[in-house]
């Protein structure tokens, strides 16, 4: 069996299994259930696309290094978009974390605070 065939076979089986599991456990969209609120003093950060985006960017940069041509530092078509998205994504991340910190610190009074996000602008 050739390598490429093995690769595609694994890829294909993997995708089918993923889709199957995802289908089995997906919450069927029903009536919108209201989000329960945490007790006072507990702040949880909101969902974010940035982890996925930064991971993809890192993988692009890495792929650019792996697929470099002769006499190249890295493949520019992969590495440059990867690096750009990585840098921009990191800036976005830091600013979002900063904004959330400002909101929790300023939008609260004594007795309130941030438990899950007590850091001053550090990316979390």
């Amino acid at each position: 069996m050739s390598d490429t065939a093995v690769g595609f076979l694994i890829l294909g089986i993997g995708m089918l299994v993923v889709l199957g599991i995802v289908f089995a456990i997906s919450s069927r969209p029903g009536p919108a259930t209201p989000r329960p609120t945490p007790p006072p003093g507990v702040h949880l950060p909101p969902p974010s696309f940035l982890p996925v985006v930064l991971s993809v960017a890192g993988a692009l940069l890495g792929a650019g290094l792996a697929f470099r041509g002769e006499d190249q530092l890295a493949n520019p078509f992969l590495a440059i978009p990867g690096l750009l998205v990585l840098v921009l994504g990191a800036i976005w991340w830091v600013r979002a974390a900063n904004r959330e910190w400002q909101e929790t610190e300023h939008g609260s009074h004594a007795g309130h605070g941030s438990r899950g996000s007590h850091d001053d602008g550090a990316a979390h």
């Binding site: 991971s55 899950g116 996000s117």
Partner: peptide, 11 residues
């Protein structure tokens, strides 16, 4: 209530 750095956790 969660890990110390939830978004880095996702990353």
């Amino acid at each position: 209530p969660d890990m110390a750095f939830p978004r880095i956790n996702a990353l």
